[in-house]
Design a binder for these strands. Structure first.
Length: 572
DNA sequence: GCCGTTTTCGGCCCGACTGTTTTCAGTCG
């Protein structure tokens, strides 16, 4: 997504929140929210568009277009500033807590003067909430639980947000004279699902110009350290970025060291010690003489430790060293190996892009096949009908004839009901090329019931893929409390694939689940769940998760040729 | 605030669940 679009999206969303908190017109708030989403999913950069061009974005009318133009020219919007004056930023933070919405947040502020999460926790412990109208003991407990959840992410941020910052900084620093190498390392290079801080490495003779360039970046809110070897900043959004400049000869050792994980590095250093060597961020040395053996590339360092190069996504001390020693590292799936996306939406339901635009964007990514899987009617807000689905199918078949290089599959994302049932009867499901089925409601059922529900969905002959199986939303909602071993076993038995949903807020299944599921012999599908053409590239994050789960092409059905995929999708 | 093949007003995605009420407001997907 272009950076400006993301900024405008955040601003419009903030305005929507502020309208809601101040008790303004709910429809007005919704209009801003809708426009925020539309700008976020708009394929072209909004920077440089005028009012007339902006109004062509669906959901953006005169008033919002003018606010966007004001933002583009001055960096702020007076209407937003005005509302910010009346509502402390801390009050808006409160609505990030699950179970706590704008009305309750405003009541807390007005009645108890609460304007931060900390103050809220103190008020709950002082049992001051239960006297408010609409609050009770149970509400206090729910809010506390929500805060725990929010804090469980430990201030870590989502993978895509960190990636965006890191790639932009790497781009800026790479362009400076004297830059021999530049890359991000750390948990971002290992593609963990959330990121604590961003580590950036530069190989250059002189460090000062790079340090100066980092602190001068526009998104820097605070400089935490500014030295010769290391400089740290914090961005306006609270993300810490550490920059280290290494002598070009130490590049490989530095990259290996700062990529981690800590546990992986401990293992590699132990191997070095056994070989009477010493490994540090400066290189691999003879323990006794201190003479340097190598430091220029990661490959050379691993080689001198008697190991093949280990992909960063495996460096978690989960058996990768032993596998490397035996020459049994998996031949990991790559994004290039993916032949098509099997879970995407259009503006027929809650997507932002038309069918035609989604198909164009998929073709541009070089896919051999592409499935359109809009929501089924039990997600009531989508107002789906059989007639709408059949009309879409007819259009998909037409487009399929036009796109000779790419086969289009017509599918749907079904809702797994409270007892494992899905939206439509078998006769209608038989008409789809692919059915993904996902849980979208009743998250708090008992463990037994949730398990039976998912198993029953896997046993449905028309269901080929279980979408975002745990339904977690990072920092917002934990995964379902079900017996997933039973679910994985059922999927293996019935030939139902488990999705690796690539949306940065989901990444579901996550790496640990994938590793466990794989032991049952399950197949997987790495999908974007795109709701806009701009979301199709999310696939890279799902691929990261799949690599962290040690998956190969063979494990993932959407790397397979179309014929083999179709046989897998066949009901039964 | 947006939108329009019932078009410049009067609708706006709908339904369920929870915890608080005693007939409903707030939150969520």
């Amino acid at each position: 997504m272009p950076r400006t679009n993301a900024e405008v999206q955040a601003l419009l969303q903030e305005y929507a929140d502020l309208v809601r908190i101040s008790g303004g017109d709910a429809f007005k708030a919704r209009a801003y929210e809708k426009a925020a989403r539309a700008v976020g999913g708009h394929p072209a950069d909004v920077a440089g568009l005028d009012v007339k061009e902006l109004r062509e974005i669906p959901g953006v009318g005169r008033s919002i277009a003018e606010k966007i133009v004001e933002f583009l020219s001055s960096g702020q919007v007076s209407a937003v500033e005005e509302r910010r004056e009346h509502i402390p930023a801390g009050v808006r933070e409160l609505i990030a807590i699950p179970q706590l919405g704008p009305r309750k947040a405003m009541l807390l502020h007005q009645e108890l003067g609460i304007s931060s999460v900390d103050a809220l926790v103190a008020a709950i412990h002082g049992e001051r909430l239960r006297d408010l109208k609409g609050f009770g003991e149970k509400t206090e407990q729910n809010i506390l639980h929500g805060i725990e959840l929010l804090r469980a992410s430990g201030g870590r941020i989502l993978l895509d947000a960190a990636m965006e910052v890191a790639e932009r900084i790497v781009g800026e620093l790479s362009a400076l004279p004297g830059c021999e190498r530049c890359a991000y390392a750390g948990s971002l290079r290992r593609m963990r699902d959330t990121i604590g801080d961003v580590d950036i490495l530069v190989a250059a003779e002189a460090s000062a110009p790079f340090m100066a360039a980092l602190v001068a970046l526009p998104e820097v809110a605070e400089t935490l350290a500014h030295g010769e070897k290391k400089t740290s900043i914090r961005t306006a959004k609270g993300l810490q970025v550490d920059l280290r400049v290494l002598p070009p000869g130490s590049w490989g050792a530095g990259l290996q060291y700062f990529t981690g994980s800590k546990a992986h590095n401990i293992r590699t250093r132990e191997i070095a010690v056994r070989r009477k060597l010493k490994l540090s961020e400066y290189g691999l040395f003879h323990a006794k003489s201190g003479r340097k053996i190598t430091s220029e590339t990661e490959e050379a360092i691993y080689e001198r430790l008697g190991l093949p190069w280990i992909p960063p996504t495996l460096r978690e001390d989960r058996g990768e060293i032993a596998a490397a020693e035996r020459g049994e590292l998996p031949d990991l799936i790559t994004e290039d190996a993916v032949r098509g996306d099997l879970h995407t939406h259009t503006d027929l339901t809650d997507g932002l892009s038309s069918l035609e635009a989604m198909v164009e964007a998929a073709a541009a990514r070089g896919y051999a096949y592409f499935a359109v899987t809009d929501h089924a009617p039990d997600l009531a807000m989508q107002r789906m009908t059989q007639e709408k689905m059949l009309a879409q199918r007819a259009r998909v078949r037409e487009l399929d004839r036009v796109h000779r290089g790419m086969r289009l599959l017509h599918g749907t994302e079904l809702n797994i009901g409270p007892d494992g049932e899905v939206d439509w009867p078998g006769e209608f499901l038989a008409g789809f090329d692919i059915c993904v089925a996902s849980v979208h409601s009743h998250f708090n059922q008992s463990r037994d019931r949730l398990t039976r529900r998912l198993v029953r969905a896997a046993e449905n002959p028309y269901v080929s893929v279980i979408g975002h199986p745990t339904t977690r939303r990072i920092g917002k909602r934990p995964g379902l409390d079900a017996d997933f071993d039973a679910v994985f076993e059922a999927c293996a038995r019935t030939g139902t694939a488990l999705e690796i949903n690539s949306h940065p807020e989901r990444l579901d299944l996550c790496d640990d689940d994938i590793l466990r599921a794989k032991t049952y012999g399950v197949k997987f599908a790495v999908n974007s769940d795109a709701h806009s053409t701009t979301h199709l590239p999310y696939l890279r994050y799902g691929i990261g998760m799949a690599q962290r789960g040690w998956l190969t092409d063979e494990d993932v059905i959407n790397t397979w040729p179309l014929g083999r995929l179709r046989r897998f999708l066949r009901p039964g």
